Computed example of a mutant assay.
Amino acid sequence: MVLVTGASGQVGKHLLQVLSARGISARAWIHSKRNEEAVLAAGAKEVYIGDLNAREAAVKAMEGSDTVYFICNTANPREDEIGAQLIETAKEIGGITFIYHSVLHFLLSDMPHHKRKQGVEKTLADSGIPYVIIQPTVFMQMLTPAIQSVKHGGPFVQKFYTSDQTKMTYVDMADYAEAAAEIIASGAYLYGTYEFCSEGAYSLTDMEAIFSELAGRKVTSAFISDADFLANAHKAPDSYEGQTLLTMFRHYNANSFCGNAFTLTQILGRKPVTIREYLKNALQG
């Protein structure tokens, strides 16, 4: 049994779908009963409802599990503490492989959520229990607002690029889930750290060209202001989550965020979906 935390989020539901398709039983750990129907529909065999922050909840949730797949909600200010507690609980129970959903280039500690993930990775590597660390780049699904804008005749609305010097590497969440399920099923990846990226590093000009080609018209970009981004994300301007996300985008704008597709290609046994392929399917859908 695979225990999946954060199971009601996009990543969690993608993973549940693939695990179910492969005949791997998964228990979804969710915070609220209102998400129960959604995770069952995604493929969860069992559902545990409880507070991710509570140690007693972790003990109950892990009962009968041989794998814990730890996904924390984005920009959680306690991710390092929660991770440490879950790792310690898994170690005490014994016989559990711990898989951690981290982030590409976790060492970039100027981004607060990277620093917290760095802490979880260290705790896990020092724990002595079997583990796997998965480090995805930016998900292509984060481009959904841009895709909807272009589909309706608008610009490429985005917050990744302030100049053409910035380059970004993306990955499809479906490829992420397929590779993660392969790691779980095979058992051949223990004690490894794996970057999940698709091919290429794309500039603003590259993205505008791809959107223009697929839309059959000239598509230019429109940068989303901080205020509009926070409003659309339902984050208070002074919140930890909101400021962490803004810091992340500022880092992307100033430094780029690029990775390599070799590892994901090897795990999938094929090339990952490219950004052009993803955008084509999304715009036609």
Rank of each mutant, 00 (worst) to 15 (best):
1 M>V: 08
1 M>P: 14
1 M>Y: 14
2 V>K: 00
2 V>T: 04
3 L>H: 00
3 L>T: 00
7 A>Y: 00
7 A>C: 05
10 Q>D: 15
12 G>Q: 06
20 S>C: 08
24 I>M: 05
28 A>N: 05
30 I>W: 00
31 H>V: 01
32 S>F: 08
43 G>C: 12
49 I>N: 02
49 I>C: 01
57 A>V: 05
60 K>G: 11
60 K>C: 09
61 A>Q: 03
62 M>R: 11
63 E>N: 11
63 E>H: 06
65 S>K: 09
67 T>C: 14
67 T>Y: 06
68 V>R: 01
71 I>T: 15
73 N>P: 09
80 D>F: 00
87 I>S: 01
88 E>S: 14
91 K>P: 04
96 I>M: 06
96 I>F: 01
100 Y>M: 03
115 K>A: 15
119 G>S: 07
121 E>S: 02
125 A>Q: 15
129 I>R: 08
133 I>C: 05
134 I>Y: 00
135 Q>W: 06
135 Q>P: 01
142 M>P: 04
143 L>V: 09
168 M>D: 08
178 E>M: 04
179 A>N: 04
180 A>R: 05
183 I>W: 06
188 A>W: 02
188 A>L: 12
195 E>M: 03
199 E>G: 12
200 G>W: 04
200 G>D: 03
201 A>L: 07
202 Y>C: 03
204 L>Y: 00
204 L>K: 09
217 R>N: 05
219 V>K: 05
219 V>Q: 12
234 H>V: 06
234 H>N: 05
236 A>Q: 14
238 D>Q: 07
240 Y>I: 06
242 G>D: 03
248 M>W: 14
249 F>H: 13
251 H>E: 11
251 H>T: 12
252 Y>F: 14
255 N>G: 09
257 F>I: 04
258 C>E: 15
262 F>R: 10
263 T>M: 15
263 T>D: 15
270 R>L: 10
270 R>I: 04
280 K>D: 13
282 A>D: 02
285 G>I: 07
